[in-house]
């Protein structure tokens, strides 16, 4: 069992978490009615009595973009000066050609489809997101841009925090145990690049296991054990396989 300092409770919409005065770190999921704090989604509420902090980790929900989020998107449409990108949010994102190409474009001379076509996958960051407009992406930055190799795994966006782990512990475990490169995007798409097919399968299975068991404590240890067992099964390392 993981030892937790703050108190954690499973809450459902309409349920009062605590009474009094607290700081809310996840304002989208907690509202204050009278003196009570009420949860608005199914999730794990964390109450820290010492620092009077209150937060809620949702267990269900769609991806809501935030500025600076790393996302993996699929190009859905090629426009005259921009692309429309699906980032699994309720809103379609826009990637401007000026940003992607790093120079002004002349729509009369060139076709953006030559650079990114429908169905292409990109790794990008959310640059701007305002309520009255859809999110705008940028590919300026290290490692950002078109993805040309690797596999994308999709999980529920609310489980992303588990795949990263506390201070990146789970992410380090996944990369360290398998030698794969794992890029976790905030919108629940995970890019894995592996030296071989067996390791890729193991990483994907481990990620899906994390998604399924995200709310059960002791996850890091179970995943570590799982990866080792799968490696033994596939003959990648020596050892005895326990039969399930």
């Amino acid at each position: 069992m993981e030892t937790q300092e703050p108190r954690r409770v499973l809450v459902v919409p309409g349920e009062a978490i605590v009474e009094g005065d607290y700081k809310i770190s996840t304002p989208n999921f907690i509202i204050k009615v009278g003196s009570k704090y009420i949860a608005t989604v199914v999730g794990l509420a964390q109450v820290n009595e010492e620092s009077k902090e209150l937060s809620l980790i949702p267990l269900e929900g769609c991806y809501v973009p935030q500025v600076d989020d790393l996302v993996i998107g699929y190009v859905m449409d090629v426009g005259v000066t921009s692309w429309e990108v699906d980032i699994r949010a309720p809103f379609t994102a826009t990637l401007y050609a000026v940003d992607f190409l790093g120079r002004p474009v002349n729509p009369a001379r060139e076709d953006l489809g030559d650079y990114l076509a429908v169905g292409d996958t990109i790794l990008a960051k959310v640059e701007v997101f305002e309520r009255n407009r859809g999110p705008i992406l940028t590919t300026k930055g290290k490692g950002l841009g078109k993805i040309v190799h690797g596999t994308v795994v999709e999980i529920s966006p609310v489980k992303v925090a588990r795949v990263i782990g506390r201070k990146g512990s789970m992410h380090q475990l996944l990369e360290g145990e398998t030698g794969c490169e794992v890029i976790v995007a905030r919108n629940g798409r995970i890019l894995v690049r592996c030296p071989n097919k067996e390791l890729e399968e193991i990483v994907i299975m481990a990620i899906l296991k994390i998604e399924r068991e995200a709310h059960i404590p002791g996850l890091t240890d179970r995943v570590k054990e799982f990866i080792i067992r799968e490696k033994v099964k596939r003959g990648l390392i020596g050892g005895e396989t326990k039969t399930d």
């Binding site: 459902v12 919409p13 309409g14 989208n28 999921f29 509202i31 009615v33 009420i38 608005t40 989604v41 199914v42 949702p58 267990l59 269900e60 929900g61 769609c62 609310v158």
Partner: peptide, 11 residues
């Protein structure tokens, strides 16, 4: 709606 994770004030 609650299962979809859409924020609601109550059920």
């Amino acid at each position: 709606l609650a299962d979809a994770g859409i924020p609601m004030r109550d059920i």
